[in-house]
Amino acid sequence: MSIYRVVPVSGVISTDDIIPARYKHMYTDPDELAPHVFEHRFPGLAAQFETGDAVVGDSTFGIGSSREQAVSALLGCGVRLVVAPSFGRIFYRNCWNLGLPAIELETASLVTAGQLDVSLQTGTVVVGDEVVRFASPAPLMIDMVGAGGLLAMVLRDRGAPAGTDGRMQA
């Protein structure tokens, strides 16, 4: 189990909201992107993040642009978990690809909590006295996070004999 501080955000969130486009064309370093997170949508929020935070949304999170910088910028802010009722599909992939777990879950009871205790392996979130269950992610995705992201996983498997699942071989 890992404990996260909850940072609630409300409404449908686009990747434009998370990081405005011009910054992704100016910077590739997450530390340079981080101060601009949510700059248009929630001015001032970027400065409030601490390492180990969970962003908890109440609607579809991460719609629109494919910009992976939305994830790297959140990581740069210290965000280590994203929880929302649903996700934009590219953002969802990008999260796991960069080793940031994204959990799909009804969050009504979570947004007001101070902190969450989460286990990916067992698919549980402990909020105060309550235990909320979610579909635990596929082994591949947990493997990806454990390896430090998709590219690290692919390189780790480099040269390994092709498995029955025909994984990506670098």
Binding site: S66, N94, N97, L150, V154, M168
Partner: peptide, 18 residues
């Protein structure tokens, strides 16, 4: 399929995706 930079980088290297 639209994808982010890491997905695309992995596909550029391996010719495969998940």
């Amino acid at each position: 399929l639209g994808m982010g930079a890491t997905d695309i980088a992995a596909a550029m290297v391996t010719g495969r995706t998940w």
